[in-house]
């Protein structure tokens, strides 16, 4: 049962990576990165159960915290001095609707 969940989480991680690589704007990447972090938390918790050492949960808890902080840090520093009213990356708005 844990293996099934791990497989699902890994598949989702790969998809999140696709979005993180593709962008197109930095906000898409940050969103994908944040989502990726949540999946890593789940992955580590599940791995702890599979190997029978649930003290891994400390690490999972730390991950959740670090992921949150890193996301806020990127947002805080990125938005700084970006002119208001202008898109953060010029290419982002040209994306064609699916």
């Amino acid at each position: 049962m844990f293996a099934t969940a791990i497989a699902a989480v890994i598949a989702a991680m790969v998809l999140a990576l696709v979005r993180a690589f593709a962008g197109p704007s930095l906000y898409d990447r940050v969103l994908a990165g944040n989502s990726f972090g949540t999946k890593t938390v789940l992955l580590i918790g599940l791995m702890g159960f599979i190997t029978g050492r649930p003290d891994f949960l400390d690490i999972a808890l730390l991950y959740a915290l670090i992921n949150f902080t890193a996301t806020l840090a990127i947002l805080r520093f990125f938005s700084y001095r970006t002119p208001k009213g202008a898109p953060a990356e010029p290419a982002s708005e040209k994306e064609s609707p699916a």
Partner: peptide, 12 residues
């Protein structure tokens, strides 16, 4: 910024 974010993912 993207590089820093990806390096965060790399660390995770």
């Amino acid at each position: 910024f993207a590089v820093v974010m990806l390096s965060g993912i790399y660390s995770l």
